[in-house]
Design a protein around this nucleic acid. Sequence first.
DNA 1: GCATGATCATGC
DNA 2: GCATGATCATGC
Length: 473
Amino acid sequence: MDYNYDKNNKESIEQYARKLLNKSLNELNIYNREYRFNNKKSKGRLGQTVEESYFGYRVNSKQEADFDEVGVELKVCPLKNIKKKPNSNNIRERLGYSAKERVVLSIIDYFKLNNEVWDNNSIMDKCEELLLMFYMNKKDVPTEDLIFKIISLWKPSQQDLKIIESDWNTIVSKVKDGKAHEISEGDTMYLGACTKGSTAEKSKRLQPNSNILAPQRAFSYKRSYVDYIIEDLLRKEQYKKFKLAKSLSDEYMLFDQKIYNIFNEIVNKSLDEIIKVYSINRQRKAKNFIRLVIDDVCKIAFGDKLDNFEEFKKANIEIKTILLKPNGIPKESMSFEQIDYCEIVNEEWNTSTIRNKFENKKHLWIIFKSKINFKKQSELGLDDILLNKVMLWNMPIADLDNSMYKVWIDTTNKIKQGDYNNFIKISNGEIAHIRPKGKDANDLALTPQGTKERKKCFWLNSKYIKEQIEKEI
DNA sequence: GCATGATCATGC
DNA sequence: GCATGATCATGC
C-alpha cells in the first residue's frame, strides 16, 4: 500500500484517512508495514503509528501543522462507550459514544503567548482545522486492533470561534498579569489550558511576568466540547449517508428527456465519430470499452456519470450498453451481479434479491449495432459500430413472475442440494440462464454447504433482449 | 453459429 | 482487493 494521498489537497487527505473507517490498522495491514523512520517507540503509539506508518511522515512537535501545506493538524483521539440512550435526540448518546479525553492541541509557551494577540495567535494558526480520527478505546486490546469510528476534517464554527477567542483571552490575561501559576481549566468554556507533564511539580517552568514557577500547560478542547464535536461529526456523517446527488432534471426539462436529447444527437453516428465529437481519449483495451466511452460522453454532456445523478439513484436506473449484430440480435447475453449462494437459499421469491432487482429497477439501454458480421468485437473498426437506439426498459411483471421465477426456484433448489453444475442454460428456453462470472475458473465463492464453488450470476438471454428491444416502438 | 465456460481492464 | 460490466475462446 502506498501513502496514496495528495498532501496539497485537504479532501484527498481526508478521503485517504477515511479508508480506516470502521477498520483497525491491522485490517489494512498498516501495522506490519515497515516503519518508515527508526524512531524509538514512545507513548501515544496509535497516533504515532498513524502519522508514520499510515501517512508516512515523521512525528514532530514542530510549530507548523502536520499537513502544513493545507494547514490541517492531525489528531487521533479515543472514544469510550457510555450507556446507550436509544430515545435521545443526540446521535452520540444513542450510539453510546463519548470522548475519553480532551483533545490536546499544543503546549503553551508562556513567553511567546505573552506577546501574542488573537488575530495572529499561533494556536489557531496551527490548529484551526483538524483532521480528527476517533477510535473506540478498548482495554487490553492492542493499539493495532483498535477500530476507527469517526474520521473527518473539522473546524470550529464562527460562533464557537467567538467563545474560543474569549477563552484564549482569559488564559492570555492571566499570563500577562503574571498569574500563569493560577490558570485553571475551569476558567474557560471550550478552549482549556490543561496541565501537561508527568507531574505538575516536575513540569514547572518560568513565566514572563512573575518569578513564580507555573505548571506546564497545553491548549486543549475540553472533554465536554469534544463531545459536542463528536455529535456534530456524527450528524454530518448521517447527512452524507442520505445526501442526494445532484439532480439532472432542471426547470425546463425532465432528466429522461435530457438524456434522449443528448443521445438523439449522436444516434446513427459511429463510435469513431462519437469519440471525435466529444474529444474522448480512451484506449480500446477493456472489455467494457463501449460502456466506458458512454460514461465519458455523459461526463462531458451532463457533468458526471449518469448513475451519480439523483434521479438514477431514486428511480434505481442501471445503465447497460448492448451491441447488436447486423441481424438485430445482441452479440452477448447480459450479465448481472454474482449470486450470493449463502444468501439466496434463505430468500423467498417475493422478497428475493433478484425479484427486487427486476421489479424495482429500470435499465437505460444504450444500443449499438454493427454494420458487419463479426466473431469478436475487437475485429470491428470503431466506424463499424453505430449508435442505434436509447431506451428505458423494465422487465414486464409477467416475465418476472413466470420465466424468471422458474430460473430462480430451480437455481435455489439446486444450490440447496449442493448441485452447482446443472443450472438452467440458455437452451432451456427461459428468459434467463445461469453462467460463470469471475476473475477466472479459480475465483470461488462460499456455499451454504461450506464448500467453495465458482462464482456465477444471472444472465438475460440475448434472444429475450432482442424481443424486448423490438417490442418498443 | 450458437451455447457455455473463461477471462480482463477498470473503478470504487 | 474485488465486484462490475462486459467480451473472448472454444467445442460441438
